[in-house]
Amino acid sequence: MEMQNYQGLVNFLIELVLATVFLIIIARRFNNVIMAVIIQGVLLGVLCIALGWATGNYEMYIAALLTLVVKAGIIPFVLNKAVHKVAINRAVESFLSLKLMFLFAFCLVFTSYLATGQVIGNGSGLIHEALPAAISMMLIGLFLMINLKFPIMQIVGLVVIENGIFLAGIGTTHGMPLVVELGIFMDILVGVLIMGVLVFQINRSFDTIDTKNLRNLRG
């Protein structure tokens, strides 16, 4: 099992990816948020390369390339454009205070490590950090979407959730079949683009981009 030699490295990389989520939480400026998203994308790309190297699975290199281009390149670029257009010089606003958010995120990480241990026992051929880290990312992504006020941050939350699922995919089974993986990349890319377009349009119609204005439709 050549894999064993790389376990340490891979697990370390996964922990770094999880750490970037906390970078997003503490960032108070949009530029820093986008920087954290880029770092997360790059780390995921490196993780793919490491796994490809360890397992000799050439599909991982394709996944790495796509990750770097889409998640560390195009998506941050679109986000950056949207920020410059609608929210430049604005601080990230949240409903909870920073301390509470941090505490909450820690609880989420703790819960997911606890829960996944019960669902999938050790030694099932998977990298043991991947699944709990992935579920933490999904939960924290959801938490970010609820707690942060700008639509752009909801897009960031979505990207974090998707990165979490991607991490779960490569960590547990070296990714889904390539066609499916390609389709998912396309969906997330087109999705972020369309959300970007909507952010522009909302900003134009409402003269602001605060989600509290989006509360007309009820009942």
């Binding site: 998707e162 889904m176 439709l217």
Partner: peptide
Amino acid sequence: NKKNSLEAAWKYIIICTVGIIFALFGTL
């Protein structure tokens, strides 16, 4: 392109994408 329709579109894409991303996890 009115306020209400943009609000609906935003809710639609966010709620459905988040919802369906769980289905992706299920598929995984």
